[in-house]
């Protein structure tokens, strides 16, 4: 959500914007954020993807209806709709693939606590659980089963190093500030705090940017 959304909510003409358009905006924003953030972001819980799925189905039906029509005018409209449909599909595909890539990379981490599990959609959770089971089974049948019993775990934390890799929350991200706010960042030598204005763009650690993004004061770019 950015400042425009907030203004729109108090604006009486807000409901003039069709739901489809708002969904597309939300999807685009979720897609950009997901591709920029080093860790998995929560799955949108407000039924966004059910609506998107319906929209795409409706458009496909429309395309099928119009295909029979030989009028050149419909033909042009058809191309526009199909192009838009391909782009819409691309957004959804790229978004889902970005998430799957992150889940595959740190499966055990995202399955380790309830809080982290809640970020995954039901389908993703099923996929991740199943995938991890397959991997573990593969390790077992390839070599792990002939190991001494105390070495067969995949989640040891011996010598203070956990076997479970976690995403690097300290990696750098770019954010655009949406509300005038105080941005605090930790540096290598000193920490810094900057009073920032709307539409400023800055680079900082994801761990520092996360609270701002969650509060809606900034968005990832």
């Amino acid at each position: 959500m950015d400042i425009d959304d907030i203004l729109r909510e108090v604006d009486p003409t807000f409901h003039a914007i069709p739901q489809e358009k708002r969904d597309l905006q939300e999807l685009t924003r979720a897609w950009i954020a997901e591709r920029c953030a080093p860790e998995l972001l929560p799955w949108p819980a407000n039924g966004l993807f059910e609506r998107i799925d319906d929209n795409i189905k409706r458009q496909i039906e429309k395309v099928e209806e119009m295909t029979g029509d030989m009028d050149p005018k419909t033909n042009f409209a058809l191309i526009v709709i199909q192009t838009e449909l391909e782009r819409y599909r691309y957004l959804v595909r790229s978004y889902l693939r970005a998430r799957i890539a992150k889940i595959d990379r740190h499966t055990l981490h995202y399955l380790s606590t309830d809080d982290l599990r809640s970020r995954l959609s039901e389908m993703e959770l099923a996929y991740a659980t199943h995938h991890q089971a397959l991997l573990h089974n593969h390790y077992l049948s390839s070599f792990l089963s002939s190991f001494p019993a105390n070495l067969q775990n995949l989640n040891d934390a011996s010598a203070g190093i956990s076997m479970i890799e976690t995403p690097d929350l300290e990696s750098a991200v770019f954010i655009r500030v949406l509300k005038n706010t105080l941005v605090q960042g930790r540096g290598v030598d000193t920490d810094d705090a900057v009073e920032s204005d709307e539409s400023d763009i800055m680079i900082l650690r994801w761990a520092d940017a996360k609270p701002l993004v969650e509060a809606g004061s900034a968005e990832l770019v």
Partner: peptide
């Protein structure tokens, strides 16, 4: 295949290049 099957209209394994031309 099972995961893909839940997104029938998207073709998850499709190209990850943004589409330019139809």
């Amino acid at each position: 295949a099972a995961y893909k099957g839940q997104w029938t209209d998207i073709d998850l394994t499709g190209s990850l290049e943004p589409p330019r031309d139809l």
